[in-house]
């Protein structure tokens, strides 16, 4: 078996893992902000990993669907998850704090970016966070938050409410 740090010609090479750690690439947001990120962190996004493999690695990777503020948040997440020596428990605690301060519209932007960049863990965690915040909310809260207009008459709405009265038990106050 060939030694790990020699190429087939017997020349010394930097091991691939180390190369990935040290190399950086630039991600460019929709509003033109540029962020430097290590390849190991960026590779946690399946979409960026594919772009790197398609030889975009030399230059800047444009991400036209992610704005700068959201990209900064995503990069913070990726850096933590690529950190050497970060245990699963560390990451779990980080995720909890990372998401707990976000309003629902910010969560949605991050979920969209997580979906687009194919970072499954982030996407699922953010969606679950939105669900936890939403499941006990009123119909009015959901309409307001998701900017949805009702097309029911007051009578129709009252009829549904009457038919399934139990589904309205234990709803949070909108002020929460």
């Amino acid at each position: 078996m060939a030694p790990k740090n020699k190429n087939p010609n017997g020349e010394n090479v930097v091991p691939e893992v180390q190369q990935k750690k040290t190399q950086a690439l630039i991600l460019k947001s929709s509003d033109g902000e540029e962020f430097s990120i290590s390849k190991s962190a960026a590779g946690l996004s399946v979409a960026i990993k594919n772009m790197m493999e398609d030889d975009c690695a030399g230059g800047v990777i444009p991400l036209p669907l992610v704005d700068g503020g959201t990209l900064a948040r995503v990069i913070t997440y990726l850096n933590k998850h690529a950190e050497d020596g970060a245990s699963d428990e560390d990451k779990r605690k980080f995720d909890e704090e990372f998401l707990s301060g976000m309003e629902v519209d910010v969560l949605c932007d991050v979920a969209l970016a997580g979906n687009y960049l194919d970072i499954r863990g982030l996407f699922h965690d953010v969606c679950q966070r939105i669900v936890n915040g939403m499941k006990n909310k009123s119909v009015e809260w959901v309409r307001k938050t998701f900017r949805i207009e009702s097309d029911f008459t007051a009578e129709e709405e009252e009829q549904i409410k009457k038919e399934y009265a139990w589904a309205w038990e234990g709803v949070d106050s909108d002020a929460d």
Binding site: N115, F123, Q128, M134, K135, V139, R143, I148, F152, I160
Partner: peptide, 22 residues
């Protein structure tokens, strides 16, 4: 994609209530 992911995760009780959204 996000709406779909969220709706799939909500409990039935919430979905029944949200059936009166529109």
């Amino acid at each position: 994609d996000i709406i779909r992911e969220i709706l799939h995760r909500l409990p039935v009780k919430s979905l029944v209530r949200f059936s009166s959204i529109n």
